[in-house]
Computed example of a mutant assay.
Amino acid sequence: MQLQQIDKTRYRKHLNKVIFACIAALTVGSLGIAQLLILLFPDADGSHFHWNLLGVVVTSIVIGLTLKKVKSHPFMFEVAYVWDLKQALNRITRKMMAIKKASKEGDVDAMLAMQFSYSGSKQLWTLDDNTITMEDLSMWQAELDALAREYQVELDITKYDERILTKF
């Protein structure tokens, strides 16, 4: 995955529409399915928890499959990009202890993974208006920059490939 410039306004607008559509679909779908099942299979005790749960589960699966199918639509570009970015950052975060250790030993791939993580996190946090930890990110970036200078490494995130994570 490569980082791309994203229009924050368009991203927020499209994300809000997708969230609203998912909430509306979940509400209408789960209630509709549950009511249909209750009508077809009434319970003498009056407990319809299992039908309500089934309505939520089925509707959630349908929404998930629909999102997966429309992920490549141009309307979903920014939302899908952020979705993929979060997954890529999570893959790095799960291995961050080993990556940090390797980077302190001069491993170029480890430093590159950290650079991608820090750059991607900065973009993600800016898009989501989550600026609380930006100071921490700046400190981490400064530490990484010092390591790169120490080992005379140039960190070009366009050369990042997540396959390098397999060695950590």
Rank of each mutant, 00 (worst) to 15 (best):
H50W: 05
R94S: 15
F75C: 09
N52I: 05
W51E: 07
T158C: 00
V56H: 01
I92Y: 02
K68L: 10
L147W: 00
I157D: 04
L124S: 12
G46R: 02
A146E: 11
A88N: 12
A88R: 09
P74Y: 03
L89M: 13
S117T: 08
L127T: 08
T27C: 07
E162N: 15
K68V: 04
F77Q: 14
A88H: 04
A21L: 10
F77E: 15
L54P: 02
Q4H: 12
K13I: 10
W125V: 03
A44N: 07
E105P: 04
R94N: 15
S30E: 01
E150C: 05
S121E: 10
V18A: 10
D156N: 13
L155T: 06
G29P: 02
W125G: 02
I19W: 00
N52H: 11
E105K: 14
T59G: 03
I38H: 01
S60M: 10
V57E: 07
A44L: 01
P74L: 04
E105H: 11
I33E: 02
G120V: 06
K100L: 11
V56R: 03
L3W: 03
I164Q: 09
E150A: 13
K17Y: 05
Y11R: 13
I38V: 10
A44F: 00
L15D: 07
G55T: 05
L65V: 12
A102S: 12
Q123K: 15
L85T: 06
I19N: 08
F41A: 08
K69A: 15
H48W: 01
T9W: 02
A34F: 01
K95N: 11
P74W: 00
L89E: 03
W51Q: 12
Y118T: 06
K8T: 09
E105W: 01
D128Q: 15
